[in-house]
Nucleic acid binder design. Structure first.
Lengths: 342, 342
DNA sequence: GGGTTTCATGAAAGCCTTTACATATAATTC
DNA sequence: GAATTATATGTAAAGGCTTTCATGAAACCC
């Protein structure tokens, strides 16, 4: 059975479609009696205007496209929730896709978003070093961005000037590393992160810089990027524990890898933080429920999401926006870090 | 600057729009030279057909609407990922919303989905006992479902015969409780879950039944529903630890509450599982990385998502589907359960 | 009471595709 | 070579809504 249209309503109410449209959108005065008659019919048939027809005309869909690398990492749902909250008022809705770091998928999805004429795009977590990626995805993204307002969340792409909202990850990294140094650590390792991701390279660079600034030695063999999963944290910590000389503390690119690292230490019969201090990044909800509670750097995920939408909204209104909006990270000291054994 | 349309392409290629449409959709033969000319222009202008115009005509959008109660609970992203994987081939895309258990929001969102003419709806986690909810949301959902293929994931709604895909949560609960009993526990508590949610009432009922079947006493004061958060697990376990007579094991409605419960036990200076055995539900990725590793019941979240989409697809093809597709839960014994102290 | 506003409504165009039908051309048949 | 069939393309309607412009009726002014 066909869905009822504005025509059906108009016909039965013995008015023109224009009038029905007017009561639907409250866009011009309609006489009380007429309005009542129409509203009743709308009720009766449970009529809902076809958003596509409307969008076709108005050139706006009320949809924001979101691309996240991995929804399975609790950081992203948190950002998403923030975005959703901010978008709520305007009645915006989200088309969500998990790219799982697959750049073909990202690219395809970007196409779909464009076909669907979304009002804006939020793109989280950018790649950087992969050559094929640079050539392709970036170009594509930039091209799309020229048509659809786009904001990059955490992770710039080289040689582009896309609008960005980001935590100052370098500052956050420095915060964490300085915290370790402050506790007396002199031998500090780095774990996790795919090396072609922007977030990893930013953190790694900041890590090196902080160590250098503080006059500490950088041991290349203690720099162990991998991926963002718990498993990778575990794997790399295991590797580290196997070394004959090992650090007394590690910085992990995110909380998931930190948890993995802690797990590895625990399984080896060692103690966190006594034998190994571990600091994470993100402050996912679990961080302060893990045992031991995780020292970490908060990115204010929720706020990040809100801000992304806020920026997007001003772009959609064709107002001017800053190229980069930065959120300040915060060090949250809990139980997974402490002074090294003397 | 206006987006380029099929007209612009047709004009510049000196053909009719029909021909352009034909090369776009490969729906009828087009002469090589013409096709080449058109394709070149498409390339040149980076033309992308307007999905709305198309959908308006074809009456399908390629969009599946998803409503989850809380994306922040790792179980749901997992289900979502499964759904996404299954939907991939057909190029379906997801409009996602977090309802946060707010039934007004669910209801509004349902409306939006309908306006947007999504091809199908996946609704996760149903309410049950709330009176206002019954009266309203359910009615609405049923009404929508008569127009748009809808599948309920884990959680029926009373008095409806909506199509469902669900883990056999009762069986899962029994599995877990029997496991505890098998270890020698005779005093078993129940923690977590909002009592008006279907999932809670199913589990609670199965919990009672299993205890009864095994000839154990049901102590009402050890039945502590609350919510699904880590905090609620912690809170209720704290309460339990304060009782002068307390159980030796608890069943938690999900892994998040189980983690909270473990945390509470640990902070009280007691040991899991020696002083308290704890079993969770869901088997979120973290379950086997938590310390101690969590004994839990796997719902095969990923599979659940896939199945939901699979069922939805057959509904969209207007084929017949079973009213209820059940997935079998699996008990996964890890470290958080053990024999009670003698 | 004639002229000017205001209010309520209708007619029709436009948004961008797809597709049924029609037409023109080319290829095939006997 | 006339008749048939296949191939390539065009014309125009349809899909469901919003909105501009026009019109008729009612209210106001002096």
């Amino acid at each position: 059975m066909r869905q009822v249209t504005i025509y059906d309503i108009a016909k039965e109410a013995k008015v023109s479609v224009a009038t029905v449209s007017r009561v639907l959108n409250d866009t011009a005065p309609v006489k009380g009696a007429t309005r009542a008659r129409i509203e009743e019919l709308i009720q009766k048939y449970n009529f809902q205007p076809n958003a596509m027809a409307r969008s076709l005309l108005k050139k706006e869909t009320g949809i924001i496209g979101v691309i996240v690398p991995d929804l399975t990492n609790p950081f992203f749902p948190e950002v998403f929730a923030g975005a959703e909250q901010e978008a709520q008022q305007e009645g915006h809705t989200f088309l969500l896709s998990n790219s799982i770091g697959d750049y073909t998928k990202e690219s395809e999805y970007l196409s779909i978003l464009r076909e669907k004429r979304v009002d804006g795009i939020i793109f989280m977590g950018g790649r950087i070093n992969l050559k094929q990626c640079e050539d392709h995805l970036v170009q594509e993204l930039v091209q799309h961005a020229s048509v659809i307002p786009t904001v990059l969340v955490n992770g710039g792409l080289r040689n582009t000037d896309l609008i960005r909202v980001a935590t100052d990850e370098a500052a956050g990294t420095a915060l964490a590393v300085r915290h370790l140094i402050g506790l007396g650590h002199k031998q500090i390792g780095f774990i996790g992160g795919e090396s072609h991701m922007t977030t990893t390279s930013i953190k790694l660079r900041a890590f090196r810089k902080t160590l250098k600034d503080e006059g500490l030695e950088i041991r290349e063999e203690w720099l162990l990027p991998d991926s963002f999963s718990i498993e990778s944290g575990k794997r790399q910590m295991l590797k580290m524990l196997d070394m004959k000389e090992r650090p007394t503390a590690v910085f992990c690119v995110n909380d998931y890898t930190a948890i993995g690292a802690i797990k590895a230490v625990a399984e080896a019969g060692l103690a966190v933080p006594d034998d190994m201090s571990i600091v994470g990044f993100d402050d996912i909800p679990l961080a302060h429920h893990f045992i031991p509670e995780l020292t970490t750097v908060s990115q204010q995920a929720h706020e990040l999401g809100r801000m992304a939408v806020k920026v997007l909204k001003t772009m959609m209104n064709k107002e001017k926006v800053k190229k980069l909006t930065t959120l300040d990270p915060q060090l949250i000291v809990r139980q997974s870090t402490g002074a090294p054994r003397p």
